[in-house]
């Protein structure tokens, strides 16, 4: 443990004071306040579409936090995937379930106060624990740790197998979403009458290959 701490250079309580924050810390705190406020508004507002739009603010602020922690690639992944697709999917879901556009009074359920109690208790416990545990820890931020080049190197050098497994998972999710959202009216719609209907040969009329069993292995090859 001591070698780990020595390697990270994280235990310097005398030099690092909370009263003289660096510029990155100030920006982190301000953006963090914005993220927290947007998240709180997003889970408490009565207007459902506004909740999704406040979620955009919260997730975009988190992308800025990732940038401040020198994880550039993850920041842009956050912008692309969360702000680009997840929020759009959420908005689609809200619209397709006929969410009311205006103020809906029953957005919160009856156990709101129990939920508030649980959340405040969890927040108090977690913040106390985390602040006590990492009070003197210091992150030495150096640029380039999360650049696209470094990301490609560690991802395709050390994490190839999880990466490929994840692609299979995405494929399974895609197929599952298609199967779930298909119309469940019973059977598939009949194929339209066309050239590929069963019982009618597609190629030349009166192809003899299917009816002459003695020359079956060679006849289709000659047909083509």
């Amino acid at each position: 443990m001591s070698t780990l701490l020595a390697a990270t250079g994280s235990l310097e309580p005398a030099a690092r004071s909370f009263l003289s924050p660096t510029g990155a810390e100030v920006v982190f705190l301000l953006v963090g306040l914005a993220v927290l406020g947007a998240a709180v508004v997003s889970v408490t507002t009565k207007q459902l579409v506004h909740a999704a739009l406040w979620l955009v603010v919260a997730l975009g602020g988190l992308a800025v936090e990732f940038l401040l922690l020198t994880a550039e690639f993850i920041a842009w992944v956050q912008v692309l995937i969360y702000l680009g697709s997840v929020v759009v999917l959420v908005l689609f879901g809200l619209m397709l379930t006929r969410a009311p556009i205006g103020r809906s009074p029953d957005a919160d359920s009856g156990n709101r106060w129990a939920a508030l109690l649980v959340a405040l208790a969890a927040a108090g416990t977690l913040v106390t624990l985390v602040a006590d545990a990492f009070r003197t820890s210091w992150i030495d931020l150096t640029a380039g740790g999360g650049s696209t080049r470094a990301t490609g190197e560690y991802l395709f050098r050390h994490w190839v197998l999880p990466f490929e497994a994840l692609s299979v998972l995405l494929l399974a999710a895609l197929v599952g979403a298609i199967v779930l959202s298909r119309s469940t009216s019973g059977r598939l719609p009949r194929p339209r009458a066309g050239k590929l209907r069963a019982g009618k040969p597609v190629g030349r009329p009166a192809a003899p290959a299917a009816t002459v069993p003695s020359t079956a292995p060679t006849a289709p090859a000659q047909e083509r």
């Binding site: 810390e25 919260a58 401040l68 922690l69 913040v127 985390v130 602040a131 990492f134 820890s137």
Partner: peptide, 13 residues
């Protein structure tokens, strides 16, 4: 940067 800031923000979020 102090580790407390991101850790506390993550806990609150």
């Amino acid at each position: 940067m102090h580790l407390v800031y991101p850790a506390v923000l993550a806990a609150l979020l």
